[in-house]
Amino acid sequence: MSAFNAIGSDREVERKEFTPGIEPQATWCPGCGDFGVLKALKGAMAELGRDPEEVLLVTGIGCSGKLNSYFESYGFHTIHGRSLPVARAAKLANPDLEVVAAGGDGDGYGIGGNHFMHTARENHDMTYIVFNNEIFGLTKGQTSPTSPKGHESKTQPHGSAKSPIRPLSLALTSGASYVARTAAVNPNQAQEILVEAIEHDGFAHIDFLTQCPTWNKDAKQYVPYIDVQQNDDYDFDRSDRGEAAEMMQRTERSLYEGEVLTGRFYHEPDRPSYGEEKREVGEMPEEPLAEQYHDDDYEWERSYDLLDTHK
């Protein structure tokens, strides 16, 4: 019998089960977009009937990194920019675990930009939520990789000389198999997108616009927003890489012109995940690696013995 008896329990799960008994109230500022992520994530997990104990929520550093203090599940608050490596390992070792990684735009697109690119490339089966408030919020509003060109802050007092990165395009080019953008001001769409992303078998990237009313005074509230799937002006095939790329570029450009476009931008449902590829070539066992931990009779291999140092 599996040691992971919380996985696949298949029962009715109430949203409130994801609210911890300790510290149920988040300490984010009033009006913070992060509340929207928390709400949508609780709603999505309950909608999917996930047991809090079959979920691992891995976070980076920043206001967003406290998400798992306020979300009741297994939680791992990692170091800056490193939520993805921890999430990847957990998922590879226990593929039936529901793994969600989360962090801010500075954490994910700056500090851990390399992990973002390569986790997308390798198509690790997980959901990655990037809280995008276009600044570093926890440390009081410094310029981040998504701050608009010319954005003034303590670190760029004469205005940022750098063009912001294009998160959706970056995800697509790197190899993400599901790419979406949503906004904290639209919790219903956010929950729907989270449900799709969690159900997607592969790397699902959500650029989640989270307004920071305290430290990003230029911050838009990201209203009015447009759902590109519900507006006839934006007709594109999200399974087509070329059309998706064009739509993403338009979306990224228009954000700085005051037009907030959200929705699903790319979906490639059939690409095998990294874990599937590794099991296919026999480099990962069919039975979850994590099961070995509780197997008293397991004959442990030493990594050293697997090396042929002078081949």
């Binding site: 300790i22 104990e53 203090s69 939680g75 226990n94 994590a290």
Partner: peptide, 23 residues
């Protein structure tokens, strides 16, 4: 405990934390 086990839930953090894992 390993994520996925019933009753083994934890919160790990590098910030100083209470025994329950809260900062």
């Amino acid at each position: 405990s390993i994520p996925g086990q019933q009753g083994g839930r934890f919160l790990a953090t590098g910030n100083e934390h209470t025994p329950e894992g809260h900062i």
